[in-house]
Amino acid sequence: MPSLFEELDSQDSLLGEISLRKRKIPAFGDREIYEVKLGEEFLMSSMFVEAEEALSTLGLEQVKDKNLSVVVGGLGLGYTAVAALKDERISELLVVDALDTVISWHQKELVPLGKILNADKRNRYILGSFFDLARNPSAGFDPDHPGKKFDAILLDIDHSPTEYLNPANAGFYTTENLSKMSEQLKPNGVFAMWSQNPPEANFEALLGTVFETVESHLVSFYNPFQGKNSTNSVYVCTK
């Protein structure tokens, strides 16, 4: 009988042991499910990707220009990046991740979407801390073009604006540091961010100190483990 579970990789990282797993759940048929764990904590699953994809579609639909330069903060399993590349207006996509292990999963095509990202010449992986780069507009996200400005920045790293993958990330969520990030957007540029929780009024108010418009979207998707719909949020802000 074929194995229903396989650990594809496990490596130490700055945040602890991070692992990539593939499994099948008989109740869901032959579907292969990819999961990422940090220590004993589940970070992401290919079963629940609707909100990650919506981060791209909701964010990019607010950008009115063509020949777009876009930053994605957080590679994960690649769903936000691949959804962004479906927008034919994109001329370049920089995907920033602090963990070389995660980037290598895509480069080695251990995850299904790695093949799509590697084949698209518009895509480029950037190894580095999104939060450090966001706070340094004179250098910016593109090591080849310091100070470059972008049409959109799409962020999916922390669990929410108040629940952090790394406690050090908390300092990013201030008017000062969000403003430094916004300096890297073109006029009328868009910042969008994923959250696992419903929209938080305090965070919306904080975003309003930096951006001209702030909208929050609830993204609903079916959760077969709970037998009902679940929701994530996407914040969309225009400079």
Results as ranks from 00 to 15, higher is better:
2 P>S: 07
2 P>I: 09
3 S>M: 05
3 S>L: 09
5 F>G: 02
10 S>E: 13
11 Q>M: 02
15 L>N: 10
17 E>P: 10
19 S>T: 13
22 K>F: 06
23 R>S: 07
26 P>Y: 05
27 A>N: 04
28 F>Y: 06
29 G>F: 02
29 G>M: 02
30 D>A: 07
31 R>N: 01
31 R>G: 03
33 I>C: 07
35 E>T: 11
37 K>G: 00
39 G>K: 12
40 E>Y: 04
40 E>I: 02
47 M>V: 08
52 E>V: 01
52 E>A: 15
56 S>G: 15
57 T>F: 13
58 L>C: 04
59 G>H: 03
63 V>G: 03
64 K>L: 10
70 V>Q: 08
75 L>H: 04
77 L>P: 12
77 L>M: 13
77 L>S: 09
77 L>I: 04
78 G>T: 03
81 A>P: 03
81 A>M: 04
81 A>Y: 01
82 V>M: 11
86 K>A: 14
87 D>S: 14
88 E>D: 13
89 R>N: 13
93 L>A: 12
94 L>E: 02
96 V>N: 13
99 L>C: 07
108 K>P: 10
109 E>A: 09
114 G>W: 04
116 I>H: 11
124 R>S: 12
124 R>A: 06
127 L>V: 07
130 F>H: 01
132 D>H: 08
136 N>D: 14
136 N>V: 07
137 P>S: 02
138 S>V: 10
139 A>E: 15
140 G>C: 15
141 F>I: 03
149 K>N: 08
155 L>A: 14
155 L>W: 02
158 D>F: 02
161 P>L: 04
166 N>R: 11
168 A>I: 07
169 N>R: 06
170 A>K: 15
174 T>E: 13
174 T>W: 04
176 E>G: 05
176 E>L: 15
179 S>K: 10
179 S>W: 03
179 S>N: 06
182 S>F: 01
184 Q>H: 10
189 G>E: 05
189 G>H: 04
190 V>A: 05
196 Q>C: 12
198 P>A: 09
206 L>V: 11
210 V>I: 10
212 E>L: 11
215 E>S: 13
217 H>F: 14
220 S>F: 07
221 F>Y: 15
227 G>C: 01
229 N>V: 04
231 T>P: 04
232 N>F: 08
233 S>R: 04
234 V>R: 05
236 V>L: 05
